[in-house]
Nucleic acid binder design. Structure first.
Length: 839
RNA sequence: GCGGCCGUGGCGGAAUUGGUAGACGCGCAGCGUUGAGGGCGCUGUGGGAGUAAUCCUGUGGAAGUUCAAGUCUUCUCGGCCGCACCA
């Protein structure tokens, strides 16, 4: 049998859809909108299978919603600033812009070949000045709102990318993209005040009802809210009080020292008075540029200060130390140490021979050779004695707050977002430095600050620094000489608001309010979980900040979030342990011993990638799409298999043949509904299938939807002869299958739709609705159990009375035999389901 | 260490939300078609016993709730992911 001509079919319909602009969309007041968005790609060269999966999922949802009467916004664009372009420029002597444009061109062609329903008129590219000039305006708005500041601090330095990374971009102490071990470097950087929104970003997570729990948990951890108490300890040197943050006020009576960060103001004061202290602090600070891993392994060290703190209740004197493990940025940069119940304090107390006073009696046997952190009853704690931890915390908090020695405080782990990057291929930060060294934001008249194209990459890391024509300028407000900021934005800046720009991609304004109000928020966002914190947290922050600047009227950008799993493939190694390509590549012939490894995320280094182009050429877009959807639910990893893709292709051919060989007769048939719409087996199965598959679409259970469609088409394959005798019924069944299958495999179904005698595009036809009157099943199989174990089944009319079921069940020969002389103790019957006889 | 998610045939995965476990597919086996291979078609396929009807057993393990547990509860083992000197 010959395979169907997917090349011809797919190309034809792609051209038809494009020339008729059926996916072009504008706001329509009387239509319900639906904004579906997939994370836009970085134009790295070619599409990979991860993209194919991501965009297939989005396309199915878009087409499904379209067919269900929604006004669907489904745009696509390019996250086109970033380092790979610069690296290519150095290695291959191509300009980043040319390299980027070429890649966009290639990938756009590939996307079109997949048949995705994008409104290409809305295409945007972030490295286009039409995009990033608005970003500079946003920066100025943020500046006005006080959300931007410059500060010198230890920052994460990626030695491979040769630029700074935000905290979120450091994964396990390594750069998120380069994988290089991150170093600490003291630098002056621009920051965005994301911490201003920490509370709201955390609090609102609970309202994101349609986000995966996992993502919300990750964000929650990242924001790291801690509720505690800030307690004042007065000092006997007549200086100001020390404020100490704690989440364990119940252990206050066990306090045996106070520890300050080396950057704490009091520590700094004493550094000037005492050389020893000064040296210690210096040592602590030199540790700050250690790699994270090493820093964590440091021994806990401290130096005693020449004064004491007074316990806020007992008034006893407590020694004060500067210690190397206290971080200034967290809490108040000072803690009280309770060695018996905190491991760090315990280690410190052992080292400096400080008292270890137990204040919580463990519930189980416990030897005090390490800190006890479990629950128990308070001891040695005056009025707290006998209480459990929670009660003790409540009581002492109340007491301290009442006596004005403490106040409740909530602190966050989240730090401000450093956005300066020492790189060329990004959006120039619209800042100028005046002669007096002052930095000022560019004025509206200075914008846009266009990235110069005539740059020389041979001189240094950042060619903007060497570009004097561009760098030296005038500040338009005063006309004086000025130097431009030569650093560019972190590229996560671009992706933090692109979803809003898609509403009015060509507007002269940053965001056209009317359009944004119609389309936003994004109803369904789809992308990889690797952006759980990075991009998704930044976008949530931006949306709030833009709201405060009056540019948006929503606070959360993405209503629903789907994080799709990775595309994996088996890995293979040869005798030498080198990665080799999978067998279907035909490149294993020369290897005599092949070791099959586990299935892992497709990656070039493991040689287990499958090129989408090859699949498109061999099987076509519909087969690729079908396979992407059929094997696993979207949020789980999908294992790419050669047999799987072949299976999908075979199935499409089989379906094609069935429809093709019957289409000649069926296309002429006119359906007169009353003639055949009886409650027969086919109609009831069809309606059940429509009902179930529609609900599967709504819940993104595409694998299950496909299983149900296949189940139904199996019926058609088996009963073809019989169905040919009732052409109206046959046509009705086939048209419904084509329609309900069309969001997943749009080209072949479009062709089938026309072959069956329809003239308009299939997407414009109405989605089938299950008729409830045909959903009723006439006969039902009831399970008959004895003591909960299945023994028999019984076919009965739908809704048979309980008493009738009981009568019938008890008269079954097999049941009689099992029951024997026993009298049933109890009989439980659930209508249409089950009868359980307890003996 | 803390937090989250998940364990179902040889494999990917279903299971009306507590009611016939294994849908659909891959793989495998047998048969048919074919000179052969591929392709296609039919049949079978959780495990064990039996010629068979049938019986026993079965959702990582142990216990519990229930007439009834893959589904709920507790413990336990294993895997994946996130956070972590965070006071």
């Amino acid at each position: 049998m010959e395979n169907y001509d997917f090349r011809k079919i797919e190309e034809n319909w792609q051209n038809e859809w494009e020339s008729k602009k059926i996916f072009k969309v504008e706001p329509e007041k009387n239509k319900k909108k639906y904004y579906v968005l997939e994370m836009f790609p970085y134009p790295s060269g070619k599409l990979h299978m991860g993209h194919v999966r991501n965009y297939t999922l989005g396309d199915v949802i878009a087409r499904f919603k379209y067919s269900n009467g929604f006004n669907v916004l489904h745009p696509m664009g390019w996250d086109s600033f970033g380092l790979p372009a610069e690296n290519a420029a150095r290695e291959n002597k191509v300009h980043p812009k040319d390299w980027t444009l070429k890649n966009i061109n290639t990938m756009k062609t590939q996307l079109k070949k997949m048949g995705f329903s994008y409104d290409w008129d809305r295409e945007l590219s972030t490295s286009d000045d039409n995009y990033y000039k608005h970003e500079q305006k946003i920066f100025l708005e943020f500046y006005k709102k006080g959300l931007v500041y410059k500060k010198s601090s230890y920052v994460n330095w990626d030695p491979i990318e040769k630029c700074v990374l935000a905290n979120e971009q450091v994964i396990d102490g390594k750069g998120w993209r380069s994988g290089a071990i991150v170093e600490k470097k003291l630098m002056s950087q621009w920051f965005l005040k994301i911490t201003k929104y920490a509370k709201d970003l955390e609090k609102s997570l609970k309202d994101l009802k349609f986000w995966p729990e996992q993502v919300k948990t990750m964000q929650r951890n990242w924001i790291g809210e801690s509720k505690g108490l800030k307690i004042k300890f007065s000092l006997d040197n007549k200086e100001k009080d020390v404020e100490v943050f704690t989440t364990r006020p119940d252990t206050l009576f066990g306090a045996s020292f106070i520890a300050l960060s080396s950057e704490h103001p009091i520590a700094k004061t004493y550094a000037n008075k005492n050389k020893e202290i000064k040296n210690f602090i210096k040592k602590c600070q030199s540790n700050l540029n250690l790699q994270e891993e090493e820093f964590e392994k440091l021994e806990k060290l401290g130096i005693k200060l020449p004064f004491s703190a007074l316990h806020p209740i007992t008034k006893k004197k407590i020694p004060v130390y500067v210690a190397n493990f206290i971080i200034m940025e967290y809490g108040s940069g000072a803690v009280f140490g309770c060695p018996a119940h905190d491991q760090r304090d315990f280690d410190f107390a052992v080292k400096y021979n400080l008292p270890i006073k137990q204040v919580i009696k463990p519930t189980e046997n416990f030897k005090l050779d390490k800190a006890y952190t479990g629950d128990g009853k308070l001891i040695n704690s005056e009025f707290l004695n006998g209480l459990n931890i929670k009660k003790a915390q409540e009581k002492i908090s109340k007491f301290l707050i009442k006596s004005k020695k403490a106040k409740t405080e909530i602190i966050y782990r989240l730090k401000d977002w450093s956005i300066s990057r020492q790189r060329y291929w990004g959006c120039p930060i619209p800042i100028m430095y005046l002669k007096n060294g002052e930095s000022v934001p560019a004025t509206e008249d200075d914008l846009p600050i266009i990235l110069p194209e005539d740059v020389d990459f041979s001189k240094s890391q950042n060619p903007l620094k060497d570009h004097s024509d561009w760098k030296y300028t005038k500040y338009s407000k005063t006309g004086e000489d000025a130097i431009r900021e030569t650093e560019t934005f972190d590229t996560f800046f671009e992706s933090s608001w692109y979803f809003a720009r898609f509403c009015s991609p060509k507007s002269k304004d940053i965001i056209e309010k009317k359009e944004a109000e119609y389309w936003l928020p994004v109803d369904q966002y789809i992308g990889g979980i690797e952006h759980a914190i990075l991009h998704l947290l930044y976008s949530r922050f931006f949306t709030r900040a833009l709201y405060d600047c009056g540019l948006l009227s929503i606070k959360e950008p993405f209503e629903n979030l789907l994080t799709q799993g990775m595309v994996c493939h088996k890995t293979y190694k040869n005798k030498k342990g080198e990665w080799i390509k999978p067998p279907e590549s035909g490149e294993q012939k020369n290897e005599n011993k092949i070791i099959i490894g586990k299935s892992e995320k497709m990656s070039k280094s493991k040689k287990n990638v499958v090129d989408p182009d090859l699949i498109l050429n061999k099987y076509g877009a519909d087969t690729a799409r079908l396979f992407m959807l059929s094997d696993s639910p979207p949020e789980k990893d999908l294992e790419w298999t050669d047999t799987g893709i072949k299976g999908s292709f075979k199935y499409l051919n089989k379906l094609w043949d069935l429809i093709k060989r019957n289409s000649k007769d069926l296309s002429k048939v006119k359906i007169n509904k009353n003639d055949f719409l009886k409650n027969n087996k086919y109609i009831s199965d069809l309606n059940k299938m429509i009902h179930d598959v529609t609900s599967d679409y709504e819940n993104f259970r595409f694998n299950r939807a496909i299983a149900r469609i296949r189940e139904f088409t199996n019926l058609l394959f088996n009963k073809e002869e019989e169905l040919r005798k009732n052409n109206q019924l046959f046509k009705h069944l086939i048209e419904n299958i084509i329609k309900i299958f069309s969001p997943m495999i749009p080209h072949i179904t479009e062709e089938m739709w026309h072959v069956m005698g329809n003239n308009d595009f299939i997407i414009k036809s109405k989605w089938p609705v299950a008729d409830k009157k045909f959903l009723k099943v006439e006969k039902i199989v009831v399970a008959i159990q004895i003591n909960g174990k299945l023994k028999e089944t019984l076919e009965l009319p739908f809704n048979t009375d309980i008493s009738e079921i009981q009568k019938k069940a008890l008269s079954l020969p097999k049941i009689i035999k099992i029951i024997g002389n026993n009298k049933p103790k109890k009989i439980i019957i659930v209508k249409n389901r089950v009868a359980n006889i307890v003996i």
